[in-house]
């Protein structure tokens, strides 16, 4: 077949046009992921290529107190932060969906926490949580509610709560705006019909809004879980995983071990260990939530 004939073949052309995209994916997605996974099975150090050690890294990490703590922290952080982000985000979306004065202005303002670079907002929280200069502590002391400054990032559980609050603050706009977009696709006629049937607001929410919003919720929550589970910047700026590793997430510990610590293989294994959790989260929200939407 000559080249000109080949170029007229639709199948071949289609394949040809897909090549650049496939190459991009291969080079920038598949290769790094594959390399990372492979490194996790080696004892590679920075400056020295590793040899295959099988599951040794994983076996070690399983017995490592800090790695186990980081897994707990990550799951706890993700569970609490995404749940609260979802609840508050949905609430905010419902409010914004009402006819408010300066609607578009308010919607734009809501997005601000999401627009500010994480490292920057983390710095703001750094000052808010500072043991000596915290504005929160200062305010409460002035109000006479407490008599000493709160050690936000010095106490393990308080530190966990503090970083979660910072993450929620940053993550709500994303959830709210996406859900708002979903809300606007719901035809008003459903609500009109419901009103005529004498439905209460709760019934309208439960039987109209929620089912029709489910596909969007599935997508938004998947992303929300992914972002939260892999959070890095916030922790790195605020605590570096301290105090006593109470806020170390798998991502931050992986970096600490792999790059400053030089244990590339172990860091890669730790990062790879996040994949099953992420996959599970994706599968859950995708199948769990989306199938219900089809059933409607």
């Amino acid at each position: 077949m000559s080249l000109s004939r080949l170029l007229e073949n639709r199948n071949f052309l289609g394949f040809l046009f897909m090549l650049p995209a496939a190459a991009l994916l291969l080079v920038f997605l598949t290769y790094p992921l594959g390399l990372g996974t492979w490194l996790g099975f080696t004892d590679a150090k920075i400056g020295r290529a590793g040899v295959w050690v099988g599951l040794e890294n994983y076996i070690y990490l399983f017995g490592d107190q800090v790695a186990r703590l980081s897994l707990f922290n990550t799951v706890f952080y993700t569970a609490v932060a995404t749940t609260v982000k979802f609840a508050l985000g949905l609430w905010l979306a419902l409010l914004l969906n009402k006819n408010l004065p300066f609607k578009s202005f308010i919607r734009a303002v809501i997005l601000l926490p999401y627009i500010v670079p994480t490292a920057l907002s983390a710095l703001a929280f750094w000052w808010i949580y500072d043991t000596q200069f915290s504005i929160v502590s200062w305010g409460l002391v002035r109000l006479g509610l407490i008599d000493h400054y709160i050690d936000f990032l010095g106490d393990p559980w308080l530190a966990r709560a503090s970083v979660i609050v910072a993450n929620i603050w940053r993550g709500i706009p994303f959830v709210a705006i996406c859900l708002l977009a979903g809300l606007q696709t719901i035809s008003p006629s459903y609500y009109e019909a419901a009103v005529l049937d004498g439905a209460t607001p709760w019934q309208m929410f439960r039987y109209i809004t929620l089912p029709l919003l489910t596909p969007i919720i599935a997508v938004v929550m998947t992303f929300s879980i992914l972002f939260t589970f892999t959070d890095f910047q916030l922790i790195y700026v605020l605590t570096r995983g301290g105090p006593l590793n109470a806020t170390h997430l798998m991502a931050t510990l992986s970096f600490q071990r792999a790059i400053p610590g030089g244990a590339l293989g172990e860091g890669a294994a730790l990062a790879t260990a996040m994949v099953p959790f992420l996959l599970a989260a994706i599968l859950f929200s995708y199948f769990g939530l989306q199938r219900r939407a089809w059933q409607q």
Binding site: T131, H148, Y149, D151, L153, G154, R240, G242, P243
Partner: peptide
């Protein structure tokens, strides 16, 4: 002084 468990270099 309270809070040294959370201190990083600049604190």
């Amino acid at each position: 002084v309270p809070g040294t468990l959370s201190w990083q270099d600049p604190h």
